[in-house]
C-alpha cells in the first residue's frame, strides 16, 4: 500500500473556556483522538454538525493550530518536529480555502496582489512573471484576468471564493483543506464552485480534504467520507457506499434529517441537540440521541473498527455486527 500524502494520528485538541479568576477554565474536547489519512489525488469529505470538530481537524492538519495530542505527518515527516522556516517552506505544498469568502480576503489589497502573495513568499515568481501567473490563475478559476487590480468588495461571493481558490493554487500545492467552501454561497453558485474544485482536482491531481455539513455536496465531490460527531469519527468509508447504505446510527440520522427535494424525509428527526463539548456523554458520545443505545454504550468509547462484511468501511459502534447483519 502506498503511504498517504498526509495523515493525522490520534489527534486531540482541547480548548479551555475561560473560567473564573486565575482558573484554567473548563476543558472542551474539540478532537478526541482522530485518525485520518489523505492519499495523493484523493478527496476526503469530513462531515458532521457544528461542534463535531471538523473545522478544528482541518486547521490541525495544516498546523494552523497545534494539536494537544497526536501528530500530523506530511510524507512521513512530523510537522511538530519541524522548525519554523522548514514548516513555512512546507506550506507551499498545503493550502486552505475558507468558508466565508468575505472574511478570507484582505479588504484593502487588490485580489491580484493577494493571489501573488504565496508566490512572493516562496520565491516562485516575481514581477511580470508573477503577474502572468496571476492572470493564468484567474483564467483557470473562470474569472477575467484583467480584474486583478480590483479590490475584493468589487466581486460577488462566488467570485471571491474563486479568488480564494486561485490564491490557494498559486503555490501549486499538493494538498488543500477546504473548510465549508460553498456553504456561504447561493445554490447556483455552489454548483459552479463544486464543479470548479472537481475539475481542478482532476487536472492538477490535488489531494483534497473537504469539510462540510452538506452531505449532498460531499457525495458529489469526494471519494471517501469521514463522519464526525463530538470530536470522534463515527464512520468512515467510500462515499458511494456510505450514502447507499449508511451504517452508523448517526450517519443514518444525519442522512434522514437532510431535507431533500425528491422525498419528504423527516420520518423521525433525532431528538435533542448536540451536547456541549465541555460535557460530552460518557462512553459512546452519540448514545444520548441514539435510537439503538443500550446501557452498555455508556461504558467505554467504542473504537473505530472495520464494518463486518463491507470492504474499506470502518465504524465506531458497539452494535456494528447487528447493523451489518
Amino acid at each position: 500500500m502506498i503511504a498517504p500524502l498526509i495523515r493525522g494520528e490520534g489527534l486531540t485538541r482541547i480548548f479551555h473556556r475561560r473560567g473564573g479568576f486565575l482558573g484554567r477554565g473548563v476543558p472542551m474536547l474539540a478532537l478526541r483522538g482522530v485518525d485520518i489519512a489523505v492519499n495523493r489525488g484523493e478527496a476526503v469529505g469530513v462531515v458532521g454538525e457544528s461542534g463535531c470538530g471538523k473545522s478544528t481537524l482541518g486547521r490541525v492538519m495544516l498546523r494552523l493550530m497545534a494539536p494537544s495530542g497526536g501528530r500530523v505527518l506530511f510524507e512521513d515527516r512530523d510537522l511538530a518536529t519541524m522548525g519554523g522556516a522548514e514548516l513555512r517552506a512546507l506550506r507551499r505544498r498545503m493550502q486552505m480555502v475558507f468558508q466565508d469568502p468575505y472574511g478570507s480576503l484582505d479588504p484593502r489589497r487588490s485580489v491580484g496582489a493577494q493571489i501573488a502573495d504565496g508566490m512572493a513568499i516562496h520565491g516562485i515568481a516575481q514581477g511580470a512573471e508573477a503577474a502572468e501567473r496571476v492572470a493564468a490563475l484567474l483564467r483557470q478559476v473562470g474569472l477575467d484576468p484583467t480584474h486583478a487590480q480590483r479590490l475584493p468588495h468589487e466581486f460577488s461571493g462566488g467570485q471571491r471564493q474563486r479568488i480564494a481558490i486561485a490564491r490557494a493554487l498559486a503555490t501549486r500545492p499538493d494538498f488543500i483543506v477546504a473548510d465549508e467552501p460553498v456553504s456561504a454561497l447561493d445554490v447556483s453558485i455552489q454548483a459552479q464552485v463544486v464543479n470548479l474544485l472537481a475539475d481542478l482536482r482532476a487536472e492538477l491531481g490535488l489531494a483534497l480534504m473537504f469539510i462540510s455539513h452538506d452531505l449532498h455536496v460531499v457525495r458529489h465531490l469526494c471519494d471517501r467520507v469521514v463522519v464526525m460527531y463530538l470530536g470522534l469519527v463515527m464512520e468512515e468509508g467510500p462515499a458511494a457506499e456510505i450514502f447507499r447504505a449508511p451504517a452508523h446510527p448517526y450517519t443514518r440520522a444525519l442522512l434522514a434529517a437532510t431535507p431533500s427535494m425528491h422525498h419528504r424525509a423527516m420520518t423521525a428527526p433525532l431528538a435533542g441537540e448536540v451536547p456541549s463539548i465541555a460535557r460530552p456523554p460518557s462512553g459512546c458520545v452519540f448514545r444520548t440521541r441514539c435510537p439503538m443505545a443500550q446501557p452498555a454504550c455508556a461504558e467505554s468509547i467504542p473504537v473505530l473498527r472495520p464494518l463486518p462484511g463491507a470492504d474499506g468501511r470502518q465504524i465506531a459502534c458497539r452494535r456494528a455486527e447487528e447493523i451489518a447483519a
Binding site: L64, R92, M96, S104, G118, A164
Partner: peptide, 20 residues
C-alpha cells in the same frame, strides 16, 4: 479573521503579516 489565517497558511513570515 480568515484572511490573517490565510496568510499564515501561505507560510508568510510574522513580520510580513504584521506589516502588510
Amino acid at each position: 479573521l480568515d484572511y490573517v489565517t490565510a496568510q499564515q497558511a501561505l507560510g508568510a513570515p510574522t513580520a510580513r503579516i504584521l506589516a502588510r
